[in-house]
Write a protein that binds this DNA or RNA. Structure first.
Lengths: 219, 219
DNA sequence: GAAAATCTGTTGAATTTTCAACAAACGGAG
DNA sequence: CTCCGTTTGTTGAAAATTCAACAGATTTTC
């Protein structure tokens, strides 16, 4: 467990919890760790929303496959990120999304009811955990807000530029890598892949952006 | 204040708080009530995100105006709904959205820091309030999820049908009113108003839906 | 109750996106 | 290093959306 210390300390859910308390608490919560190879499913759409997930290593994508089989990527979760917590906290009976490993990943799973409801040992962490969960959900809401801002744009070009501007702002730098390949970016922006490639080409030609593979730079 | 009792009791933020405690607590929190006429701004984009709002009567819309002046409607908040809480809880310095009264409305405003941080009187409600806020934010996240599911659809028709199906499911009934006129629905679905009108006409002609003004029925 | 303002449905043209197909570039496995 | 599967960029045709304009219907205001 020690090797996960850094990932866990950076996790918003455990802010303000001392290192020496952390592992006792995780035992009390019944946390366990599972490994997933690339493309393997962590949570499947339709399964009960009992667990929250925390990325200990690697990364996962939150995806939704619609009626026609089109993939939509909702977000990308990297080390220390929490996922599926909204559905678990709202006690939904079934997950409306799937979670898929984007590379070989280690995931911590915690049954959400153990976090929300005071355990029999009445250990003193629950108030802090609930406060942290509240903070985490607030930033998750803001994250989705930004995703809505992107997909609200009417044109391919505006979607791309809105997304890239958000990323640049988040990192405080006009030059950055994105965690998506072309198809995944298209699925995140909810546009056609070939149209995306074409538009990126135009933006480069017009000197608005520079890009090589998944590295982008705003000019 | 008494006349707001019903709206406040139905508010997710005050679940599990007894009637007799409610008004003492609101005083302790420094809650105040303001009235807004139709189309008046409750919160303006860019202003500090210190307050959360609760709709006591009437309704408001959460809107975002983009670079080109296009209005995007994020959601519709009716009696007992809480709004702007995610931004306040995340302690954002400035609001990325505006809140506009949709009809003459009475709004309760509470400074979010009063909810999140224990007050000097150390009254015993904070734990319950924080738990309720967590629950509220979880359902807000799910709400945005649904909005993303709608706007992720590629065609006008699929956006309309996804939205109407969601509404029908929420109400448990295939026949219902929506809180939007045509232009507002277009701004919520992120599509062209005239295209929306045309597509609704087709759906009616094909016998898939029935509609009159803002009343809809799935067949 | 009449006039003014707003909302809705309809049209056709212009623009944009999607779709399908292909070839070049790339990356990993052996 | 070579082969093979995957990713990316490009193209043109088909389909869908947006835009602008207008007229009829509805609602609001005085």
């Amino acid at each position: 467990m020690k090797k996960y210390l850094k990932a866990l300390q950076n996790c918003s859910l455990f802010r303000g919890i001392a290192e020496e308390s952390l592992f006792t608490m995780l035992t009390c919560l019944g946390a366990r760790v599972e490994s997933f190879d690339k493309k393997y499913t962590v949570f499947a759409e339709g399964s009960p929303a009992r667990y929250i997930g925390i990325v200990l290593s690697g990364s996962v994508q939150i995806v939704q496959i619609d009626y026609y089989g089109n993939r939509s990527i909702l977000s990308h979760m990297k080390e220390s990120d929490v996922f599926a917590e909204a559905f678990a906290c709202a006690e939904m009976t079934s997950l409306p999304i799937s979670v898929v490993a984007n590379e070989p990943s280690e995931i911590m799973l915690i049954e959400c009811s153990h976090i929300l409801h005071t355990c029999s040992n009445s250990c003193g962490f629950h108030q802090q955990l609930i406060f942290n969960m509240m903070k985490d959900l607030a930033s998750k809401t803001i994250l989705f807000h930004q995703k809505i801002e992107v997909v609200s744009q009417r044109t391919t070009r505006d979607k791309i530029m809105t997304y890239l501007s958000q990323e640049a702002k988040k990192r405080g730098c006009n030059s950055f890598d994105i965690p998506y390949d072309r198809q995944a970016l298209a699925d995140y922006l909810e546009i056609d892949r070939s149209g995306l490639s074409a538009e990126i080409g135009k933006l480069k030609k017009e000197g608005i952006i520079e890009s090589h593979k998944n590295h982008f730079e705003l000019l």
